[in-house]
Amino acid sequence: MLKNVLAAAAFAALLPATALAQSEDFTAYEKPLYEAATAEGEVIWYTSQFTTEMSESACQLFMKRYEGIKCSPVRATGGVTFQRVMQEVQAGAVQGDVFSTNDQSDLLELKKLNALEKFLPQSVEFMSPVLKPMNDDEGYFFVSSVSPYGIAYNTNLVKEEDAPKSWSDLTDPKWKDQVAISHPSFSGSAGLWTLAMKNLFGWEYFEKLNEGNPQIGRSTADGYNLVVSGERKIAVTAIALSRQGEAEGQPVTTVVPSEGLMLPPSGTGVLAGAPHPNAAKLFAEFMLSEEYSVWLRDLKRYPLRAGVDTAEGIEPLDTSKVITVPVTDAVQGLPEVQDKFRDIFGI
């Protein structure tokens, strides 16, 4: 588990000396932003891109670097988070500052409603060349995490040779009652995954999957936890979770499906009318910092900066086989996919 990271971050946050030492490293751009953000005192981060624990950890990291600004993560699934933001936008009472999601179509929708600030962090230039093109071309949001979808299985319950090798293996009758997936109406990544699978195999894939009676969770992380607990043997989930879990000694390992990892790039935008606009910008800037990328790498995730390598044993993204869904397709396709999913799985 992450407790070491958290404890270290919490400990560091208690030491102003550390923060002071680092404040000397602030760039000329960063410094006035930090001062303005300090006056605002807080940043509220609506996020579905990480688990609660990682969101907390990211905030600790931020607070360690930018002492005096409280970072409050509000973590829920993409669907729920987006619902809350939409409620606020409609109510004309935006309460969050930064919005991160695995489903970039949500960001496009907000952009259309003029609910996003036109803002990209300065550090965009240091981003990995694979990821840079996935930023919004008009400069409203950027890639803040990459959390590919793959297959995780419980190593106590499934032998390596029996484990599924591809997305299509999941429909094998031998996995009846043993697969966990997530609901596209709740999880943003699951929405994209559903769209990608539909593009690959057509709806029969889901009809066959349904015969195997998969457990449908709300969050991607739910599937991972179901596998760790042994409640289900196999899950479609964010491989970052299973890689990290494996590293911590959980009975879980990761399969990169032969068709390729499904790549939902998480996007982040600053909300228009945010109560703490400078803190929001500072936080966005922080997400593209080297520190943040190193932190991602240490957690077996894909770093965002070009200069930071992936963790040992993880193939870099630029050489990995990936399936992507263009964000414009997602915007058009998702409502239909969610509806069809509900029709097939009856929920």
Binding site: T51, V80, R218, N225
Partner: peptide, 9 residues
């Protein structure tokens, strides 16, 4: 409820 989504039982 948010915790339950992630299965953080």
């Amino acid at each position: 409820l948010d915790m339950s989504e992630e299965g953080l039982l």
